[in-house]
Nucleic acid binder design. Structure first.
Lengths: 240, 240
DNA sequence: CTTTCATTTTGGTCCTACCATATAATTTCT
DNA sequence: AGAAATTATATGGTAGGACCAAAATGAAAG
């Protein structure tokens, strides 16, 4: 087969189509949130069979550049850090099922957040502080409502991932939230436990306000370790 | 269509095949590094057309569970943290091409490694120290050989990612190495610059040996910032 | 203007066929 | 007999056509 640039591809024609569509997405010719052209149009546009068109779309879907629900037109997605996380989610499922997978992931989260609270204590600006305070207040207000508490709990930790101005970190937070959620949901939520977790958040907040990175890191570490220990002993997931 | 478990899937039959193959891989029925059965055998085994078999294989490939070179039999791969990184590499390319992508990635690396050297200074054990020392020695021995210096440089930083016993982190290091390599290779390597970088590594090592996390973090920060600054001013990649 | 119904698109699946190459089998040569 | 060259087969990649069910669309009815 002969590609547009004249090179002979002995391997996959789909790769050429994939690259072309990638380019059209990057250049904005295919706007985000707009549906992809119909497969039969694409096969005319690229002069190939539907087979290769479909394979190309499949590749783009797994790359996170388009979102394809069965029976629906694939929708173009701007490649952002969330879609990158979405792309790994398939493998992550296997890793979590593996021995120690959940523990490894949780440990990495602890490690990251330790560094984040330290960073927050050292260099959070007024806006960061305001965001954290607001998230904390919302968390306090939700102590009696376990479902809402979980949401605000996640939001508070999420605020931590935003003190460092880097879109990679909020995406990482979303990853942790999504992948660890099944195990967090196991946690027996109660107003008492919620209150305990809120106090832990408060301690972290105070350490940040006092610009004490060591105290912030210590508070965060104890908070996450306590949560882990609770899940661990309650559900005996040591081997996970 | 009716799947093996009797459920009727209105969407994709390929998903059923994918799941079945996933199970066979997880259970070890399909051993790692062994080739997948031929497509025509699989279509008989699952009672579906080659189309869906091929789509399932494609999905598995993008999930990182099988590695498929064009025209070759797909090879089963045990899903590890490296294959997870491999799965994102497609999207990452786009993110790096985007505005500030490289900078964001490099900043995240700096953030992670700051925490890593701090961790190393606090809790590196004898083995960790020995590994770091060996990596440092190899780095010193390669000052005059820029190519080899790059390799040992990477190895030294890699040793940092292993002090915390978590397979996620070496994988992250591989990601940084692979994705940042194109930009690092731009760096004008010379014995002088190599010597400079070696001294930076030495300073980090010393701080770790002295169990001084703050000094270690400072040394690492200066090291990576200097490298970034050099790349930045030399090649004017501010907007990358 | 909304609802309902008939029509057309469109994605998902199946099938058959053919090509090019990787792999296995066979022959040929040393 | 063993190695190298040759032929045959198996296998992945692509093409094209067909059918179905659900989605999108347009027309008719309320």
């Amino acid at each position: 087969m002969t590609a547009a640039d004249g090179t002979v591809s002995r391997g996959r024609a789909a790769d050429a189509v994939t690259a072309a569509l990638e380019a059209q997405i990057s250049s904005g010719a295919l706007a985000p949130n707009s549906p992809l052209p119909a497969e039969r149009d694409l096969m005319e546009q690229f002069g190939t069979s539907r087979t290769v068109i479909r394979e190309a779309i499949s590749i783009l879907a797994n790359r996170g550049l388009v979102e394809s629900k069965p029976r629906f037109r694939p929708v173009v997605r701007k490649p952002d850090y969330e879609s990158a996380l979405h792309a790994v989610s398939g493998v992550v499922r296997h890793l979590l099922a593996d021995q120690g997978g959940v523990k490894n992931l949780y440990q990495s989260r602890l490690f990251i957040e330790r560094a984040l609270v330290r960073e927050a204590a050292v260099s959070a600006d007024k806006q960061d502080i305001a965001d954290l305070k607001q998230a904390l207040a919302a968390n306090q207000a939700a102590i009696s409502d376990s479902l809402e508490f979980y949401r605000t709990d996640t939001a508070f930790h999420g605020a931590l991932y935003r003190v460092i101005r880097n879109p990679i970190f909020p995406a990482i937070h979303e990853g942790y939230t999504a992948w660890l959620a099944p195990h967090w949901s196991k946690m027996l939520r109660s107003p008492e436990r919620n209150a305990m977790n809120y106090r832990a958040h408060e301690a972290i907040m105070n350490a940040i306000l006092e610009r004490d990175p060591a105290a912030a890191e210590a508070a965060l570490t104890e908070h996450l370790n306590a949560a882990w220990e609770h899940v661990r002993v309650t559900f005996n997931i040591d081997k996970l």
